[in-house]
């Protein structure tokens, strides 16, 4: 009995706040469930699912999401890996340096979103001013008001907010590479590129695979930045699947349709994660 007592809060969280709501979500997805008309709740079969699939925005939003995840996670990886490589060998004040370089990790999506929303402002924004000064554009761009452009600040904010996580995790992995391996490689005349591809990357592969998956899932599921910076606009052009879900749920209060849509892409995500784990022989990777 003892271990269950110790873990009681965790068990409660997992079952009470995850498993049970999930079951409820499945039930709600088959119901006509509008928060504004709670007296008219009734089962309607697959209607919510059909309605969600027929949504004319769905194609664009799926494409937005895929692009968003690939660009953001890709850039986070490059920036984070670069930072980890730069921090690999100790130097004086490294601890202080890390405290500064990792700051965004401690910041909220909200503040970060606010910051970039202001920087990308169409009239008074600093980004427009810099681009003008360097002669890259002739006229100020209204980033947030142009469909197709408005998601750019979201990209930048998401990258800025997330690459430290890669850096922190990859740095730990890099430091687990025995120093002798480097030294003997250097003696054997390995160049920088060769060391990167033959030593560093194979060594950090397990960690990298885990973080990549976690990051993809988190990026996919986060909607705070979209909510703060563009609120999905103009005309849904900057929505990702999860922010669209939020808009659907709390904009129209149609919980049934939102649950159906959410369940569909949760299942899709789980299938993708399963395939990824199979392909990369994930069980040999880190246990996060």
């Amino acid at each position: 009995m003892e271990p269950y007592l110790f873990c009681l809060p965790l068990i409660f969280c997992l079952f009470g706040l995850f498993a049970y709501p999930m079951i409820r979500a499945v039930v709600i997805s088959f119901q006509k469930y509008k928060l504004s008309q709670l007296n008219k709740v009734k089962f309607i079969g697959w209607d919510n699912y059909i309605k969600s699939l027929k949504d004319s925005n769905l194609g664009m939003i799926t494409w937005n999401t895929v692009r968003y995840v690939v660009i953001v996670v890709g850039m986070q990886f490059f920036l984070g890996f670069g930072l980890a490589l730069a921090l690999r060998r100790p130097f004086r004040f490294r601890n202080i340096y890390q405290s500064i370089a990792f700051i965004p990790y401690a910041l909220s999506g909200f503040v970060c979103g606010l910051m970039f929303r202001w920087s990308f402002n169409g009239e008074y924004g600093v980004i427009n001013d810099l681009l003008l000064r360097f002669g890259l554009i002739k006229e100020k761009i209204s980033f947030l008001g142009t469909p197709g452009m408005s998601i750019i600040p979201v990209y930048v904010a998401a990258i800025w907010l997330g690459y430290q996580f890669f850096a922190i995790m990859l740095l730990a992995a890099l430091q687990s590479i025995p120093q002798e391996v480097y030294e003997s490689a250097e003696l054997d005349g390995c160049g920088w590129w060769r060391r990167l591809f033959s030593i560093i990357l194979p060594y950090i592969r397990p960690t990298l695979l885990t973080i990549l998956m976690l990051r993809v899932v988190w990026t996919f599921n986060s909607y705070e930045l979209v909510y703060v910076i563009t609120e999905g606009g103009p005309a849904y052009s900057s929505e990702t699947l999860s922010s669209y879900l939020f808009t659907r749920a709390y904009g129209s209060l149609d919980f049934g349709a939102a649950s159906a849509l959410g369940l569909m892409f949760a299942v899709m995500l789980l299938i993708c994660a399963g395939i990824y784990m199979k392909l990369t022989k994930f069980s040999k990777a880190g246990d996060f």
């Binding site: 599921n221 879900l245 949760a266 995500l269």
Partner: peptide, 10 residues
Amino acid sequence: MIPGILCTIP
């Protein structure tokens, strides 16, 4: 892996 908003609704 589940989008948070899905749990938020119920």
